[in-house]
Design a protein around this nucleic acid. Structure first.
Lengths: 224, 224
DNA sequence: TTCATAGTTAAGTGCAGAATGAACTATTGC
DNA sequence: GCAATAGTTCATTCTGCACTTAACTATGAA
């Protein structure tokens, strides 16, 4: 197992390949040429690197005419890369009234918000005391109830639904919970409806619209 | 951010450093010389590599006399490495009545079992139909109730406790739930009491005893 | 058919950075 | 004090593997 791990680590660790993976991290599929441009290297070189990533099953290809679309072959890859990204040295802390770091990854995890946006959103809800953490369970504060109704979400209706109303959902580090349950879904759907977010075809990725960018900053201090 | 990510990736990706990190993955702290032996290289070389890992804040040191003990500086590092380890190409599936792959990492996550052992344990409980997944909530089957009482765990008592009785707790990939809540704690404590597992000092890591090794194989088909 | 674009394969080169050698400091034990 | 062990620093060497040059196949458009 150890040498397997080392192989995988060196595979990811090459600067050019790391850059390829970084580019693919938004969930979309890219052609070889697009990647060559994005990574700033030659087509041959990209081809070589993509070959290695394919061999290791980190990527998969889909052929469309004379194009080949490369993307992550499974979500474990995205998770691993995010976990690695979380290791980059923290910048010296900026200000008290902080905005959250730019979001690169935006995925849907089942039907609740996952990825960085989910985490940042949860952090913000907690900080604004819209939800509070009580013995590792999230509860909606009385202020929060008002907030949700202002936001256009009917809590009574949500409460009726069978599934768990509000629960922390562990992302790849217990430090970073993001909300799940019907509240997560409601928030997510609301944002889709208001056109803050859009689903993309052929991918689990969602993109943030210009409107969403502004609103996410306004409501949650999230910098996309 | 991208070049930061690339730097971190290449840092981890060097074979020697990957091997160092792999060694440290069991949660213990190692001296420079121990690592040099384990990684099979010279003291100077280890020193150089450890220096780089320290700079990037992936490791931290503690000086004790003329020794220096190196370990992960935070659990994010362990998580990232585990996530990377999960990317190693799956071996061709062995047998139907499978045993789980060897466990390298064994940590306590708050007070429930985390890391590979937690995941493997949960997989096994699910496979033995001791617990069943119903709409993303774990429930104890009727067979399971008998199993727990045979195992020496009093379910009625657990149920009395306030905290959530049984819930999936997401590890770094939604494919890999491990159980949390009072059941997780009960199992964990039982294993400590029966001396299957032992806590180590100065570390969150727990070690599996010889007895534990046998019993984990017997009860859960987990190969430590 | 011809030209352009997309991508791959093979052989040879070059260099970043890992490993080595030698000389150093620091702590422990006698 | 001296010897032994633990670890570091710096200058030098060396090498794996990324990258290049060049020639190739495949699809699409005119």
């Amino acid at each position: 197992m150890e040498d397997q791990f080392i192989k995988t680590a060196s595979l990811i660790g090459d600067p050019t390949r790391a850059s390829i993976l970084w580019t693919l991290m938004d969930g979309r599929a890219f052609t070889a040429t697009e990647l060559a441009v994005s990574v700033n290297t030659s087509p041959q070189n990209i081809s070589m690197h993509l070959g290695k990533l394919l061999d290791a099953d980190l990527l998969c290809v889909e052929k469309q005419g004379r194009h080949k679309y490369y993307r992550f072959s499974n979500k474990e890859v995205a998770y691993a890369l995010e976990a690695m990204a979380s290791l980059v040295p923290k910048p010296v802390v900026a200000s008290k009234n902080k905005t959250y770091p730019p979001i690169k990854f935006c995925r849907t995890c089942y039907d609740h918000l996952a990825g960085k946006i989910g985490v940042a959103l949860t952090d913000s809800l907690l900080e604004q005391k819209i939800i509070v953490n009580q013995n590792n369970t999230f509860e909606i504060s009385s202020d929060g109830e008002k907030w949700f109704s202002d936001f256009g979400i009917n809590l009574e209706e949500a409460q009726k639904q069978k599934r768990i109303f509000l629960k922390p959902c562990l992302d790849w580090s217990e430090r970073r919970n993001h909300i799940a349950g019907s509240i997560g879904t409601l928030l997510f759907n609301k944002m889709l409806k208001e056109d803050w977010l859009r689903k993309t075809e052929n991918s689990r990725a969602i993109t943030v619209t210009g409107k969403g960018e502004k609103e996410l900053l306004k409501y949650f201090k999230i910098v996309v």
